[in-house]
Computed example of a mutant assay.
Amino acid sequence: MPDITWEAPFCAEGNNCFRIGTDADGNAYIAVNGQEERYVADSVEALRTLITDIKAGKADHLL
């Protein structure tokens, strides 16, 4: 497992809390809070787009 630095959890009303992390190589990670060992990895820009879409209500059923 890479050495990931996790940010504070983001929690929306009625949804799971999730966390965003990065590693020393600039890769980005997203995981449900409390389950950081099971993460999705992608570029920072791809995960930023995913979160922006979720917050806009386009993909809230994914989390």
Rank of each mutant, 00 (worst) to 15 (best):
M1W: 07
P2Y: 08
D3Q: 12
I4P: 02
I4K: 05
T5W: 02
E7T: 15
A8S: 14
P9S: 11
F10P: 00
C11W: 07
C11S: 14
E13V: 12
G14F: 01
G14M: 02
N15P: 00
N16F: 03
N16C: 06
N16S: 10
C17G: 09
F18A: 08
F18Q: 02
F18G: 03
I20E: 00
I20N: 00
T22C: 03
D23I: 04
D23N: 13
D25S: 14
G26I: 11
G26P: 07
G26A: 09
G26S: 11
A28E: 05
A28R: 06
Y29F: 15
Y29T: 04
Y29N: 03
V32G: 02
N33E: 10
N33T: 15
N33D: 15
N33G: 05
G34A: 09
Q35N: 14
Q35W: 11
Q35V: 07
E36K: 12
E36A: 13
E36G: 08
E37S: 15
E37D: 13
E37Q: 13
E37W: 10
E37L: 09
R38M: 07
R38T: 11
Y39T: 05
V40I: 08
A41T: 07
A41L: 01
D42C: 04
D42M: 03
V44K: 07
V44P: 02
L47F: 04
L47E: 01
R48S: 09
T49K: 12
I51M: 05
I51W: 03
T52C: 04
T52H: 10
T52P: 00
D53E: 14
D53G: 15
D53T: 12
I54N: 00
A56E: 09
G57S: 12
G57M: 10
G57L: 07
K58L: 09
A59K: 09
D60Y: 12
D60G: 15
H61I: 06
L62V: 15
L63I: 09
L63E: 00
L63S: 01
